[in-house]
Every structure is written in C-alpha cells, then in structure tokens.
Amino acid sequence: MTISAEELLAIASNYWDSSKDFYLRQETSPRTERLQAAWTRELEHVERWWSFRDALRRSLPGFELKLMGSTADAGFRLIAYPILCTQLPRYDWSIVGCISILAPVYAVYAVEYECTKGKRSQFKAIFEPTLPGMDFPVRVISSKIEEVFGFSAVPSDISRTPIPLFVESKEPPHTTLFDALFTSEPASIP
C-alpha cells in the first residue's frame, strides 16, 4: 500500500522542524528529541538489521554489503557494491536500499562514482537506476525489504516532493520527502 505524500509529510513533520529557531539555540527541539528517541528504540533491535543484511547476502552473491545508519538521518541504508573481478567489466556504481525508521517505507536508488586507483570520488545519487546490471540488485533488495519488514516503496515522484522542513543541511525549498524520511545526503556512502 502506497502512503500519500501528504501522509508522509505529516509523519516527517513530527521529527523535523519547520523553522530555523532551534538551529540557533543550544537546546534541542522537541522534534529532534523525537527523532533521537526513534533511533534509541530502533537500536534496541539492531540485530534485526544484521539479520536482514545476512539474509540479503545469500540472495546477492557477487556483492559486498554494508549496512549504515546515522542518527542525523531518518533511516538505515544498505549499500550493495558489485565485487570487481578481472573477468568482468568494472562497475562504478552501487545500489542503496534505504529503510525509514519513521514510516513503513523504503526507497532503492543507485550511487555512481569515479574509481581511480581503488578510491571512489565524484559521487552522484541516481533515483531511477537504469544502467546495465542494476536491475537485479534493485529487484532483490526491494523484494527482501518487503519480505522482511513489510514496507512499501515510495515512488520517486513522491519522494522528490519538496517539503517546508529543515533536514540537516537542507532547507526549503530544497528539502524533499526523501531527505526527511531517509537521508539528506544520499550520495554519501563509504
């Protein structure tokens, strides 16, 4: 079941401020405290995230998987890196599955980058992954999130909806539902 943009905005509004007032003060806003409390609850059950990663590892041979979460964000991210092999073409992309801790929703996207001497740089988030080879990990990650968590995918047009909230380094009119539900820095991966 898809949750509407209005419903997602109502949820996000409980965790992100609509003004800069608290950014200029020493005290934490009630919304930030709610986000921190959501992370505390989620981290009490962190083993389910490790189990999810391990189950996905069996379904995605040929990919290195990393799980990351930051209390500055609103969700966990699982990054699938194609393992490089001398017999295969070089991949300069990874697939990222984001799972919100605020709403029962997820998103899957790609991060493209340049790879020079084993170092990644020039990261760019691609919200409609279409390069050859991306379909398989996108399908597997999506189906495993739905199977394990029962969450619904947020369509790209809804996740890119501008919202009147301040999320980390983003502020209106540049803030989107994606920023508030997942991360304001989608291209930032290890």
Rank of each mutant, 00 (worst) to 15 (best):
A37N: 12
T175F: 02
R53L: 05
S18Y: 10
K119P: 05
F63H: 13
I189Q: 01
S100P: 12
I3R: 14
R58C: 05
S94N: 15
S100E: 03
P172H: 04
S143C: 09
D135V: 07
P186Q: 01
T175H: 04
P82A: 02
E128V: 06
P173E: 05
P155R: 00
R48A: 09
R53T: 01
K20G: 04
C98P: 10
F178E: 07
V96H: 00
P104R: 00
E128Y: 13
A80D: 03
W93C: 04
E64H: 09
F166W: 15
P172W: 02
I99A: 14
Y15L: 04
S59T: 05
L181E: 02
E7T: 09
S51D: 12
E112F: 11
T28K: 15
T175A: 03
D73T: 14
S94T: 07
L84D: 00
A38Q: 13
I3Q: 14
A38F: 03
Q36N: 14
P190D: 00
D73L: 08
W16H: 11
L102F: 02
W39S: 03
T28C: 09
W49Y: 07
R77N: 10
A103R: 01
P30S: 01
A37E: 13
A103T: 05
E27V: 06
P137A: 02
S94R: 11
K20Q: 10
R77D: 07
S19Q: 01
P164L: 00
R160P: 08
A187D: 07
R160Y: 08
S184K: 09
L165A: 02
Y109S: 03
P186L: 00
D179H: 14
D54T: 08
A187Y: 13
A80N: 03
T116E: 14
L88G: 14
S188Y: 12
Q26W: 14
L9E: 11
D54K: 03
E42P: 00
C98V: 12
P190A: 01
Q87V: 08
F127Q: 05
F151L: 10
I189K: 06
S18F: 15
K117G: 00
E147R: 09
Y15P: 00
P186M: 00
I189V: 15
D179L: 07
D92E: 15
S142E: 08
E146L: 06
C85P: 00
M1K: 15
T175M: 03
F63Q: 13
S184T: 06
K119F: 09
T130D: 10
G69N: 02
R77V: 06
F123I: 05
G133K: 00
S156R: 15
A187V: 07
S121H: 15
F76T: 05
L43Y: 07
T175P: 06
G133V: 01
T28P: 05
Y23G: 10
P129K: 01
D135E: 13
T175S: 06
S59F: 11
A12C: 08
A5Y: 04
D73C: 14
